[in-house]
Design a protein around this nucleic acid. Sequence first.
DNA 1: CAAATAGTCAAGCGAATACTTAATTATTAT
DNA 2: ATAATAATTAAGTATTCGCTTGACTATTTG
Lengths: 112, 112
Amino acid sequence: MSRHRKDTAIESVFQALADRTRRQMVERVSQSPATVSELARPFSITLAAAVQHVQVLERSGLVRTEKQGRVRLVMVDPAGLSALRQWLDERRNLWETRLDGLSTILREKPKR
Amino acid sequence: MSRHRKDTAIESVFQALADRTRRQMVERVSQSPATVSELARPFSITLAAAVQHVQVLERSGLVRTEKQGRVRLVMVDPAGLSALRQWLDERRNLWETRLDGLSTILREKPKR
DNA sequence: CAAATAGTCAAGCGAATACTTAATTATTAT
DNA sequence: ATAATAATTAAGTATTCGCTTGACTATTTG
């Protein structure tokens, strides 16, 4: 698993969630699968815009979709969310252990 | 704490981390505090650009900064990261419990 | 004090985003 | 078969974003 691919993966997750509308779509879909139209309704955006949001979410692995007839069902995909969780876990140790000794570091650091 | 303020807070965290350079800056600073110049060095960007990144990170609560003489020290701030963690935790239950019954839901859903 | 260093601010530029409208396709309902 | 519904695609537009350059303000340092 190359470092670069991983980076772009998590990048797409952050980018997807950086948008308020998409975040709310993820939340909506976390309750139960929804169609693209259903996802569009609460916001004052066109269906076309909603389709584009769903595509962004799908590429990032935050949702899966499945076409059933003329409708596309959108549902959460654990992949994107666990990627986010993993990223967070990997870094948590880092800064948590650091914070314990932070004041100490600050006292030593100013060597300029 | 109003719902809207919370939303914009997490929004700024996602937006901040959506950028590769800023993500790496957070990691660098997780090791130990660093000056703005030190943060700029590994990337081929100007100091001015680095300043802007630090400002974005600071507004999102991912880092704190402290001016010491002509130098500005940048260090991790637990706030932004725990905001992210909290957002994740709040949603995890939702989709995790959902996923157990997901195949069932899919079997029931197609009512069109 | 003069020169070098670290950072900051403002303006501007190109690329990426989030949107729209309009045209098109596929499916379901009458 | 016709009409309505759901989604998709393409193209264009306005805004936001990451970045640069250039001017300016501290602070060290020689």
